[in-house]
Amino acid sequence: MFSKEEIAQRIAKEIKDGYYVNLGIGIPTLVANYIPKGINVVLQSENGLLGMGPFPFEGEEDADLINAGKQTITTLPGSSIFDSAMSFGMIRAQKVDLTILGAMEVSETGDIANWKIPGKMVKGMGGAMDLVASAKNIIVAMQHINKAGESKLLPKCTLPLTGVKCIKKIVTELAVLDILPEGGFKLLERAPGVSIEFIQQSTAGRLIVEGEIPEMKLD
């Protein structure tokens, strides 16, 4: 089974040279630590920055320079800053190549729920609905099963939706899966030591297994 860091590491392999990438909060944020060496990637922060750099050194924090998670950050050579409307304009116009975000549930038709649990305090959707509705390429980083062992990859989401028919790829602690245009989770890779049977029993939605399923590689 993969740790959160390993999920992030696996997702990072999907990032290609020249990509503009938006990373959500949680596991997606960790992806920045594993971007392959030697490729040029620009991170977008939807509060209005392209070219997000690492956290500042102690004592160099700037209250005016934060990311979408409200953390103090830095800029990099070539960074640019813009207002919130332009930030979501470039997202809506699909200038951002890849969006990586977390989810509480994903359905076999590509619906995603990640912003609201009825009965609990609702914090809001932030930019998640804009991102999932517009991005051409979304990878979801999520836990395959919850603490009670119940699947979060479902025939149909039970929680209020963030977006419909928008997710095409998922990386979990157990597996890498594509969601097919006609529906269904197609198993592509499994985490080291995880059996297809276990993935099957951990996937409530329709799982499609064809041919040999290799173990995920991180190097």
Binding site: S84, S87, F88, R92, A128, M129, D130, A133, L161
Partner: peptide, 28 residues
């Protein structure tokens, strides 16, 4: 949605009565 919030401001400043956005389609 955050982008909807920003763009509804933009529309007001640009003298446009409304915008069309895919954010939130199929949700509450």
């Amino acid at each position: 949605p955050q982008g909807t919030l920003a763009t509804r401001c933009l529309a007001a400043g640009y003298g446009m009565p409304a915008i069309f956005t895919p954010a939130g389609v199929g949700t509450e």
